[in-house]
Design a protein around this nucleic acid. Structure first.
Lengths: 140, 140
DNA sequence: CCGTATCCTCTGAGATACTG
DNA sequence: CAGTATCTCAGAGGATACGG
């Protein structure tokens, strides 16, 4: 039995044990669930690819995100120490978001994921068609 | 303007252009949204870490997942060509899930994410407390 | 410009019970 | 064992309007 498997023997997490994202009650799972989110990931990737950005820039950059979800996701990321929010008290106000070191670490793991998805999109779409075709037969 | 930024000038995607996860209407975005999901990611990570597994093994491995969500996520992953489902026609039936090459590629990008979360959990939790404390002041 | 507050809709997801 | 089907409900998330 490997270390990995040992750590996962039970998935209840009764404290004392090491952090384990597979364990339902482990704090790291809650964090993981928050980060394993479409909007959060795209925001971090956008900040990684394009550098510091204003709120409205982010909204344009992350296509389809509503102000509500953008605000909400940014707050979570800020709260967990991944993103830095800086307000310039001008009129009209200017607010700039940037990655903090922790966020940059994560973004650098995330960006390859985005690129991989783009690179393999064709292949996955083909697989889908095949799958759908194969399963249409059975349902005639 | 970098290539990256050029590709993201508009986020509408009118076909013809390269795949772009930041574009709301790009097919790669739909794929990304499906993969940027707690359960899908944990399933791929579990298959990566522990090898081929049966349905019930996966359910135990991925703590807290319901049969419904497990089935649903596995179907999606199978449909997109990431996971292979093999049925052994015995009684009782045995069904084994494994990574296909495409899924293994992805899983190898995902697993570091899980480990990163576990490694940095403490730090993120500390940041949260700090944030919450700082914002409790203002709300007195 | 950068949000917050409110309303409203729709689906994500658990619980439960049934099938091959 | 490995699912499918149905019901149910909370909460995700969009639209809109207002505030600093």
């Amino acid at each position: 039995m490997t270390t990995e498997e040992t750590a996962r023997a039970g998935t209840e997490w009764h404290g004392e044990e090491a952090y384990d994202v597979f364990a339902r009650l482990c704090p790291s799972r809650e964090l993981f669930a928050e980060l394993a989110d479409k909007w959060s990931m795209l925001i971090l990737m956008s900040l990684d690819a394009c550098g510091p950005q204003r709120f409205s820039e982010l909204q344009r950059g992350v296509g389809g995100v509503s102000r509500k979800m953008l605000t909400q996701s940014l707050r979570n990321l800020e709260r967990s120490g991944l993103v830095l929010r800086t307000v310039f008290p001008e009129t009209p106000p200017r607010v700039v978001y940037d990655l903090r070191p922790l966020g940059r670490e994560l973004a650098e793991l995330l960006s390859p994921l985005g690129h991989w998805t783009e690179r393999r999109a064709q292949r996955m779409l083909a697989a889908r068609e095949e799958f759908d075709a194969a399963h249409a037969e059975g349902d005639l």
